[in-house]
Structures are given as C-alpha cells and as structure tokens.
Amino acid sequence: MQQKGAQVAFRHTGLVYNRDGQAVRACADVDFTVPAGCSAAVIGPSGCGKSSLLLMAAGLLEPTDGEVLVNGRPLTGPRRETAFIPQDLGLFPWKTVLQNAMAGLRFHGMPKAAAAQRAREALESVGLEGFERAYPKDLSGGMRQRLALARGLAIDADLLLMDEPLSAIDALLREDLQDMLLDFWRRSARTQVLVTHSIEEAVYLGQVIVVFSDRPATVACCLDNPRVGTPDWRDSDGFAAQCRAVREALARAVDR
C-alpha cells in the first residue's frame, strides 16, 4: 500500500475552452493546495467548472493558465498513481467486473496473472467478490460505484479524484457508500478530492471544503472541517451548523 498520499496544488490555474471558435472560460485563477493525505470536498454552483478542474488535476486536460502541481511537480499527463472516477464512472461495459478492475494494471504493462490477483484483492475489499465474471450491466448502481473504486484501489492510488460519484444513488445507499469512502480514506494515506453538489456529502467527507464561485470557477472560500471522521459526526449539532455555514458560503459565492 502507498505509504504517502500525494499533494495537489493549483497555482493560478485557469482554463478556457474553445467551442466552435468561441472562448468559454471554465476556471479562472484557481489557487489552493490539498495537503498530502487530506480529503477535500469541492462544491459549487452547477456548470461552474468543477469537472474541468478535476480533469486538470487528473492530467487529462492542460490548463491554459497557471499550472497544477502534484507533489511539487507540474503535471504533464495522467499519473500512474492517480485514480480518476468520472461523473459516469467510466466503466467499460464490454469488460467483465474483473477485467474492469484489472484495466489500469494492464495498461501499465503488468502481466495478466499478477494483475488479476491484485484486482481480485481490490474487488474483495469493496465487497464484490463472486462477481468477477459479471458485466457492469448486471450490477446495481451501488455495486458499479464500488467497482469504480476498486479500479483505483487496484492501482494502489495515492490520489483519488472523484466527480460527483454518488449523484445517481438513492439517499440510504448513498450514506452507506459515503461511509465506505470515509473508511477507505481513513485506513489509507491517500489524498482524496471529491467534487459534489451535496452540502451534506461535502461536510461528511471533506476535511477541507472548497467553495467555488459561479463560472468561471474560482475559489470563493475554503472552510476547515476538522471533525470529519469523528464518531457520530453526521448526527451531531456541529454537523448541522457546518452544513449551514457551507450553504451560506455557497449563497455568497453565487451572489458575488
């Protein structure tokens, strides 16, 4: 297992899309750091540029201004140790559960048998043992979510980037999966960046809550949320108060 999480730093990061000759500013002067081993939740109005930010952190999109540093080095492309879970999970429907979990290791050139072994362990740790030969279509929404996570565990990621991973999941199951994410994060040294539009999810999972303004996305404020992971956090008065604080920060960010 990775001994150390990665540090992610946005340095005056900006992004301009070119859509049919028209410039669309998605992010402007984004500047914040997620320390190694931290769990950060990113929240902001819909369409503000959160997914774009995550794509840059994954090395899939090059910033048009500034840079993104991981462990102090500017990104030049996807890193081996970064796991990225896109909004639609990005599973391969034509591959079995096991092949999906193995995909990253195989792209990295690991021999089949070793990759299968590692993938099996990852599947087991998310409770998908026995489904190795099923296809994603045979899984429930929650199981698909866990498969996407298993992919990241299989490559032994030190940085997990997730784009609204639980948005398609009903409320009760969602809390279970949030507990699972929290548990995985606490048991590892991994750094985690979670984009969400749920205030409760941000407060439940983010040690730091980064609130974004309307498009172009820029950091409106960073809220410390130190009680993440403490027992009964979700049911405490502090949790409700923190949710209120995030809601107000969001309202201010949109008004600006």
Binding site: L55, P86, G90, F107
Partner: peptide, 29 residues
Amino acid sequence: VPEGAVLSARALGASRWGIYRSVTVPATL
C-alpha cells in the same frame, strides 16, 4: 462511446493504441 470510458482509460494510463484496443474497438464491434 461514452466519453467517461475514454477519459477513465486515459487516466488509467492507456496509450492511443490502448484506447482503440480496449475502448473504441470492443465498444463498436
């Protein structure tokens, strides 16, 4: 082909050839 599948393949380290072999060819066979 869902863009997410291509993105996650690239994030997992697939080369251009790997994208064809593991994503767009099996998806369109």
